[in-house]
Design a protein around this nucleic acid. Structure first.
Lengths: 362, 362
DNA sequence: TTGTACGCGTTATCAC
DNA sequence: GTGATAACGCGTACAA
């Protein structure tokens, strides 16, 4: 490898300080073996050679024999390499992220870009370090996706990210995250959290429900606040006054939601419907209701959000809001590959009515 | 931005042929502004400078002012850049992949490597192109994860991948995939598919079951064949002869499994337990049984494989096999960052008994 | 059609 | 401590 001296093969050295300086054969080796200059070899290998001189075959054969792999790093330094687009989220779990990533990936690969996904585990320091690293690596665009903690702090953070990326000609794109009011230059492709929950509440009101609860994390993320606003919208549409007693705060896991529900229904037996911030939480809500002998939707209707694959298989199957995750990713991908960004986009959500919601009990 | 000429701002040009040749300020710019040589600037910026000369502050200030971002591509070409590890799977869905990726990522980031995930959508051509691209990008290691179609063809493919990667000093690591018999030099970290299903069958046999069915894709992937072998092992342990009639072939989705189950139970009402190749399929099996008025586990016990988060919330909660996905990823990550590979590793699986399995009906 | 010479941005080496 | 120079691997304007 690194040793150019003799035939000793020092196995693979365990200490990996960095990329090996020179992996195998390079362009000069190929040119030498083919008996041409590097320029000629370069032209042939890049398919930029016009006619078909005899030397072409020799170059190709030499490359084949030497196992030549073009150095993408060097190409990128020249400004002709493959660009890469990074999809950054806190966790890569659930069909939500998978769909968004899929949409973006389709566009990216179709345009010859390298599409990669990275996670931060919700750790802000890791997120910052990751974006710094991606910037150094000269990424073309970063798709920052998902809910993010406190708005004010995030806005500053996003501005730093965008600025850093901008220094190398890269772009920050918010994905499934509302545009930042003070930073319109940062692209945003989002879906309609608010309208989705709103239609869920309207659906329930249409079934005769009046005591409709909302369970959510109620933290400062745009996701949860937008969805909570949708709940308020829906109530307003139906002429139902907002009752603080009908809002339940819970963690994001199904276990948290189950615990919170248990306590809620014990003190509020008059609730006939529960709107959940996420499907995950809805699962916990259903579990708690079952455990308490409350029938769904006979006694209480339940509605979720996200339309995860498995919630259709719950008993009863879950009524939920389906968001156009794939489309969000696709649009974001388009911006990432160079399509002009003309302003924030918000895609509509759609209510999927299944078995967990029904007429209010008599 | 890109314009060095006048004040015209041609928006962002839609045609992105490659990375911008030079984003912003480079090391020479910083050195010039600080009034030192590139060498000095480099040393200061990399924290390799010994004392604290006055020039240090000037270099730092210049870098700050110019918004200097070190070019990781150039660093990599020198052999001192950050290495990256790629996690390649067909689809990034389900806790299976997420856990594996998480384990590997922990190790990778702890060692200062850049960890990225890429998907192929199950398309072999895309997979090949992806690995080619990663090789060109001088990745340090590729973690190839998940079930893969026909064994013979895959073996050749894996060999090509390993060879290509090897040319640039990179490594191919199979993750959640059995070692290839003829290619022991390709690292493999796997979990015990076979033993997991075996313990599931033993569990059922211990509950008195004798007519135990297996539903699986029964294709040529190692995953499905290993799990089917585990089924046979379990039967043998319990002294139950293998009955071809008790093996059901189905697609990988829950819908497929539901359809197959519907047909199966109609013709084989004597089955008292069903072992499923995956949790996803188990979900479909349970749905079909419910639809036919068959109680779980009263009439038929069901066991899955993977221990996905949501299956604990099914009614009844699913008895399943939990595989150490996180540990698999972690071990693979260790190899990727340079730990010596001493041979294939197979981590044990664990049966998680829940509500969907019970004593055989009288 | 082919070869020469240079540039890309960084780091290591070796003098001073 | 610092500076000039070579090296990394590649693309390309320019000359032949």
């Amino acid at each position: 490898m690194t040793t150019r001296t003799s035939d000793d093969t020092p196995a693979r050295r365990n200490t990996t300080p960095g990329p090996e300086r020179s992996g195998g054969a390079n362009l000069a080796d190929v040119a030498r073996l083919a008996g041409v200059s590097r320029a000629t070899a370069s032209r042939v290998l890049a398919g930029r050679a016009a006619g078909k001189a005899a030397s072409h075959a020799r170059v190709l054969a030499a490359a084949q024999e030497l196992g030549y792999v073009v150095n993408g790093l060097a190409r990128s330094m020249m400004g002709v390499g493959r660009r890469s687009i990074a999809f950054v989220s806190s966790m890569m779990v659930g069909p939500t992220f998978a769909s968004m990533a899929g949409g973006a990936e389709d566009v990216a690969t179709a345009n010859g870009h390298l599409f990669t996904m990275c996670t931060t585990g919700g750790d802000i320091d890791r997120e910052a370090a990751l974006i710094e690293a991606l910037t150094e690596q000269r990424v073309a665009a970063v798709l920052l996706v998902g809910a993010t903690p406190p708005t004010e702090e995030f806005e500053q953070r996003a501005e730093r990210y965008a600025e850093t990326l901008g220094r190398v000609g890269a772009q920050l794109i918010l994905c499934g995250r509302a545009a930042l009011p003070h930073l319109p230059q940062i692209a945003s492709i989002d879906y309609d959290h608010r309208g989705g929950v709103r239609s869920a509440v309207e659906h329930l009101a249409g079934l005769g429900h009046r005591r409709i609860a909302f369970i959510g994390s109620l933290d400062d993320t745009t996701t949860s606040s937008q969805r909570f606003l949708g709940y308020q919208d829906g109530l307003a549409d139906a002429g139902i006054p907002l009752d603080e007693e009908m809002t339940v705060r819970s963690g994001n896991t199904s276990d948290d939601a189950a615990t919170a529900t248990q306590a809620f229904i014990a003190t509020h037996p008059d609730a006939t419907a529960i709107v959940c911030q996420t499907d995950i939480m809805a699962v916990g809500v259903c579990r708690a209701l079952h455990a308490s002998g409350i029938s769904i939707p006979g006694d209480v209707s339940v509605v979720g959000f996200d339309d995860m694959q498995l919630v259709a298989d719950l008993t009863p199957s879950l009524t939920t809001v389906r968001a156009p995750f794939h489309d969000v990713g696709e649009l974001a991908g388009r911006i990432a590959v160079g399509e002009a960004y003309t302003g924030p986009i918000v895609l509509p959500s759609e209510l999927v009515v299944r078995g967990s919601s029904g007429p209010v009990r008599a």
